[in-house]
Structures are given as structure tokens and as C-alpha cells.
């Protein structure tokens, strides 16, 4: 069957994800670092459930209770000017 895109933002194909898993990636984080899947502007909002299912299928493990791909702030893309506009340094707060 034809190949297909899994991560729309970073244009990552299913074959690339399967290949990354064959060569060692076993978690969402490892897949993300290897293929950039889930690292684009939507921050995995579209492909994350797919990645979870693909990993679960190929590793034969249940989808973990806590999502392995943790969300970090900003949870939405933020322009630098919007950040500068707040006039504060939030780095040390969390």
C-alpha cells in the first residue's frame, strides 16, 4: 500500500516512523527526536494519538497512563513580540 504522512506539520511518513522504530526508537520522545514527528507547529495535536497507537502496536505495549510526550509551555505557539509584550521573565517560575 502507498506510504502516507503521519505528522502533517513536519511531513513525516509512516515508513520513516516504522524505520525509526526498527532502529531503536521505542517511545514518543525517542521518535520525536529521531523523526521530528509531533514537533511541528501544532505540537502533536493532530498526530499524537496516532503515534501512541503506532508505538503501542509495534512495541506490543499498552499506551502508558501518563503520556510520555509531556507538554511544556508555551502550550501554543507564541510570537516573540507577544512574549516581549508581557515585559516579564517567566523562565524561573515553573
Amino acid at each position: 500500500m502507498s506510504d502516507k504522512i503521519i505528522c502533517r506539520c513536519e511531513e513525516v511518513l509512516l515508513s520513516e516512523i516504522v524505520e525509526a522504530m526498527k532502529t531503536g526508537a521505542q517511545t514518543e520522545k525517542e521518535l520525536k527526536l529521531k523523526t521530528r514527528a509531533g514537533m511541528g507547529i501544532c505540537q502533536g495535536r493532530t498526530c499524537r494519538p496516532l503515534l501512541e497507537q503506532i508505538i503501542s502496536f509495534y512495541t506490543n505495549k499498552k499506551i502508558p497512563q501518563a503520556s510520555n510526550l509531556t507538554f511544556s509551555i508555551p502550550v501554543r505557539p507564541l510570537s516573540l513580540s507577544a512574549l516581549a509584550h508581557t515585559g516579564k521573565d517567566y523562565k524561573n517560575e515553573n
Binding site: 502533517r8 506539520c9 513536519e10 511531513e11 511541528g40 507547529i41 501544532c42 495535536r45 493532530t46 505557539p77
Partner: peptide, 16 residues
């Protein structure tokens, strides 16, 4: 990357 056309997908601001 591939210069492929894209349009409306999610319709509610999630997919960008």
C-alpha cells in the same frame, strides 16, 4: 519540505 498545497483541515484552530 515538499512544497505541497494545504488547506482547511481541523477547522477549529488546532492543526495550524
Amino acid at each position: 519540505k515538499r512544497q505541497e498545497p494545504r488547506g482547511i483541515y481541523c477547522g477549529i484552530g488546532h492543526c495550524y
